[in-house]
Nucleic acid binder design. Structure first.
Lengths: 385, 385
DNA sequence: TTGTACGCGTTATCAG
DNA sequence: CTGATAACGCGTACAA
């Protein structure tokens, strides 16, 4: 395969010690094994000078650990937005000395099984099964052949595999809280609130976001003005829904169930001769690229893709010590906070306790802490020529 | 690592033959070794029923081939557009029974070396070193430890490593040809044509596209009206350049050096009270996502990312038998055709030989065949909720 | 303190 | 036609 590598035996010979001694020294157990300081030094020098690198393949065969993780996604790998999932996983893996096998199943269960098996054949230490959008999935049988975590997904069937998902319910609370904090205690409408049945297959965002919103609004004693369902979470649907809404009533704030719906809402609001945020405040979810393109910038609760990816490999690598938690140990579901990205689409209605300059929103004390920004924002996305 | 796998020894025992026999049968050399048909059948049945899968790690240790490829990119992996590079590589690898290690160097040479070494440690069969945009790179020393190809890049130093790049020169010919074919024999201006020095670090697109354009225009005997350089290939620069151009002259067609420049040009044209393509035709390069968003749709010569990715792993896997081509065997540079994506930004000026309905452009016989569309257009890109 | 020997799961050589 | 046996590179009981 390569220009002949130097092996541990080479190093040992070159240092004038046994292979065992060399092995102990290089794995840091030299002192423990009471190898002479002189011999240790000779081994290290030989290793350095010959450019010795341990052969992970053979080590893997012996120890069963390959410092390798499989990342199996439905289509996330080469998708513009959710590619940040991979970014996080990649960074976390590298920090811990692991490499990632990455592949896509294109939603094909057969291909999925084939790829998972192919990874097990290569002795991966575990598999991250990732979904492009947060949803319930049926865990493929092939996964039981080794450690695994579900990324951006939860198991619909009973399964001992832990999940990493965004905290959508809390995101709902955050979104509603932003409006409350800005003094909107009335005339709040929802765009995209759909009954579970009309929601993308297995999607969790719809119900959980709604739950968080409803809970927060209830607690504050404000009633929803209206809620228009949108089976398709695309700009066009958002536009239609908002148009219908504006025909029958006059909201002062909108919570759109994702940014693409919000873009449609922007357009409908504009068509109606109204302005964001002067006439209608808009808050949304995802922090899609467009959230920063539209004018005024869209205040939105961000999907923490990068952080999700990181967490997935951490849980995968540190996992295994949580199956003892009680007899009926349910699979752990790790919820990752969805940080608020404050932009300019929310108007402050009532004067409140704190400083006005740092943009609208972000004021009054509503139940629970409110996340802002967070350290996980990944790098810029570039063009291609 | 897993629920104990079934090994070749298990299969042999279960079939009542020696491990050697089992190995031969399962590697298809049973007949050649004249194993009894009966024994062969028993082995195959045992393998099937026990769900035997060969352990690639141990096989790799023995044979030195891991059915694994390393894909090292600067930042292409999670980039919206050029992620298609990976898509192509992934598909091609899977078709040939290989899995991909994917990682990113973020342009850091130390990290790059570390990752390449980590892959060699894991016995990869070869490494694809990918760049986000086509350019010259200095080949990292670590690559010499095994087979490799350069993807979307060529070596600036002398190096025996083959390259896969888009055929930018021919793309230039194509772009110019589109205008010629549509009857534009006059008043053609260039937006983004920059002297090599002002071009993004090591970028090849600028010079090669220009060369192809110039060559084709020359051959047709048409002189360029003007050429405005744009050191930054971004919409803003395209806007400025086009504005300046329109202040001093009146082109009837623009060749923009990429789609982002073209978007800026659209805006400047609109600001000047003119229309595309009625007043000014526009043709461009890349087939960026926006090319299909803007109205009218932008006719552009596409970067064949998917095809590039495919070709890279093919060359990597089939390579090795091309070092014998003469004594001074230069590294092969594989140029991948850039297909034309015909949309609505080019007006047909002169009536010509062929059918008018199928959109503008795509008519007269100009030197050489003109690529259209091509089978490599990958899948749709989706949202995230 | 150091060296010997065995095994991880395969493939490959070489006598029977 | 088949069955021992070695080897790939490394880790580690065990013996010296």
């Amino acid at each position: 395969m390569a220009t002949n590598r130097v092996t541990l035996a080479d190093v040992a010979r070159s240092a004038g010690v046994s292979q065992t001694a060399a092995s102990f020294v290089l794995s840091g157990r030299g002192a423990e094994m009471r190898i002479s300081a002189d011999a240790q030094e000779r081994v290290r020098r030989a290793a350095r000078e010959t450019g010795y690198r341990p052969n992970i393949v053979s080590r893997s065969l012996r120890t069963g650990t390959s410092h390798t993780i499989g990342f199996v996604s439905d289509t996330v790998a080469t998708t513009p937005f959710a590619g940040h999932l991979i970014w996080g996983a990649l960074d976390a893996a590298r920090e811990r000395g692991h490499l990632l096998f990455i592949c896509e199943t294109e939603g094909d269960p057969d291909l999925e099984r084939e790829l998972i098996d192919a990874m097990h054949d290569r002795g991966v230490d575990g598999i991250v099964l990732a979904s492009m959008y947060t949803r319930k999935i049926t865990v493929p049988r092939a996964l039981i052949n080794g450690p695994a975590v579900l990324l951006n997904a939860v198991a619909s069937n009973r399964s001992p595999i832990p999940s990493i998902v965004p905290d959508e319910t809390d995101a709902g609370r955050t979104a509603a809280g932003v409006l409350l904090d800005a003094g909107h205690t009335d005339r709040i409408a929802l765009i995209g609130a759909a009954p579970p049945r009309q929601t993308p297959k297995g999607s969790l965002a719809a119900v959980q976001r709604l739950q968080g919103i409803a809970e927060t609004l209830d607690r504050a004693g404000v009633a929803m003005l209206d809620a228009i369902p949108c089976p398709e979470w695309q700009p066009r649907s958002g536009y239609e829904a908002t148009r219908r809404l504006l025909e029958k009533t006059t909201p002062t704030a909108l919570i759109c169930f994702n940014d693409r719906l919000a873009v449609g809402a922007y357009q409908a609001i504009s068509d109606a001769g109204l302005e964001v945020p002067e006439d209608i405040s808009v808050v949304s979810f995802d922090d899609d690229l467009i959230a920063d393109w539209v004018r005024p910038g869209l205040t939105t609760v961000a999907l923490p893709h990068y952080e999700l990816g990181r967490k997935a490999v951490h849980v995968l690598l540190d996992g295994g010590h949580d199956r003892s938690t009680g007899a009926d140990a349910r699979p752990a579901i790790h919820k990752i906070a969805m940080p608020l990205r404050t932009r300019d689409s929310v108007r402050v209605v009532a004067a409140a306790a704190s400083e006005p300059p740092p943009g609208p929103g972000e004021v009054l004390g509503s139940p629970g802490p409110r996340e802002v920004l967070g350290p996980s924002g990944p790098r810029e996305v570039l063009g291609q020529t």
